Amino acid sequence: MENKYQFETERLGFRQWKEEDKIPFAKMNANTKVMKYFPNILSREQSDEFDS
């Protein structure tokens, strides 16, 4: 069986981005509370550039 994770820690598994990850990631990046310590919130387009 192929391991779906690139690597794992005791608590987390890390995998490649999937298309269905884009919408929740963009919502998170557009949230002012989530992005409180970042210079700006991100637009959908800016957020999508992260997986390029």
Rank of each mutant, 00 (worst) to 15 (best):
D48N: 02
K33R: 15
Q46P: 13
Q16I: 06
K27L: 15
D21Q: 12
N29M: 08
W17L: 07
K27E: 14
L12M: 00
K4P: 03
Y37K: 08
K18E: 10
K27Q: 15
F25T: 15
N40Q: 11
K4W: 10
Q6I: 09
Y5G: 07
D21A: 02
S47P: 03
P39M: 00
K18V: 14
F7Y: 12
E49R: 00
I23K: 12
W17M: 09
T32K: 04
E20F: 08
A30D: 15
N29L: 13
Q6W: 12
K33N: 14
E20C: 13
I23D: 06
K18L: 04
S43W: 01
M28R: 14
E20W: 09
K33Y: 05
M35E: 09
K33Q: 14
N29H: 13
A30Q: 08
E49W: 05
P24T: 13
M35S: 07
F38I: 13
E20V: 02
S52L: 11
K33W: 13
F50L: 02
F25E: 11
Q6R: 14
A26T: 13
S47H: 00
V34F: 09
E2L: 10
D51G: 13
D48P: 03
R11Q: 04
E8W: 07
P39A: 05
R15V: 04
Y37D: 13
Y5K: 11
N40T: 08
P24I: 06
